[in-house]
Amino acid sequence: MKALEADQALVSRAGTPGTPGSPETPAGPSRRDFVRLTATLAALTIGGQALASDHGKPGKLSPDRMAVLVDLTRCVGCRRCEWACADANGNPHGVIAECDDQSVFTARRNPGNGQFCVVNRSETVDAAGTPVHAKIQCMHCEHPPCVSACLVGAMRKDPTGPVTYDPSRCIGCRYCMVACPFERLSYEYDRRFTPRVRKCEMCRHLTAKGEVPACVGICPVEALQYGRREDLLRIAHERIARHPDTYTDRVYGETEGGGTSWLYLSARPFETLATLGFPALPDRSPAERTESIQHGIFKWGAAPMVLGALLATLNKVTAKGDGA
């Protein structure tokens, strides 16, 4: 009995009509209460959706969005792109001649805080004894999981191609890094209060001036090509068709992970290059899946509302049963 009383404070008015201690409470939750609850939730959900920033919503990409085509058969591993990248992004770098140091190839490297793109070399060589060199950086996905993941819209897919990062919005949850299917994001763990996510932004400060990204500009073999994604895809497929013996018949990034802005051509099948930065990915972005789950469940707040109505009804029904 004490147990019952102890809880009256919690539910006295609403839930337990007829129980001793709350004789004057009205029966069950009033209809008004329920309407109020529903209205509040609906307003919150719809209002929230209306107010929220529209970052990351797919289907808003420009048909003229830019991309980069990388021909791995041309890349010789000179690492000038790394130098140019560091130079263009204000990252520390030595003199350009230091790029000739091939010893860095002994260990696989990932893009990091001071180096947004890196070139790796395959352990295996082809029939002519030549290894594959591959420059890797943020792939600038068409439907980027990092953008979908970011709860404050710090990651943004620019309609013109690049995936950009705005530290002034970021709260540092690093969910973008969990979401990145290529694992290309880097975090400044060592900055005490203002750590940032570091990534390639496709040199948007240069492209805004009509220049090409720094890595594309410096590539001596023109293994990198900057242009409209549509054009580059066409060029890539034409190149494969022209040299079917040279290239494996696939443009990596055309569909991988829902498509990326960085496209790769290779002589070797990409399946053999997984550890070089070409993971096997489904043709749909993982963001598509979470977004369809998320928006499926919370479309117009329908599911929570139904659940709420169900709970309120249950409450009322069982309360009557108790009261009887």
Binding site: A52, G56, K57
Partner: peptide
Amino acid sequence: DLGRFWAMWHVMLPTMWQPNSVLFEVAI
């Protein structure tokens, strides 16, 4: 765990909301 814990209040700012984010829904 937040790298910029002092910016945590951004989550409450509707102009910052990004409703595609699962984490946004969890946070709210």
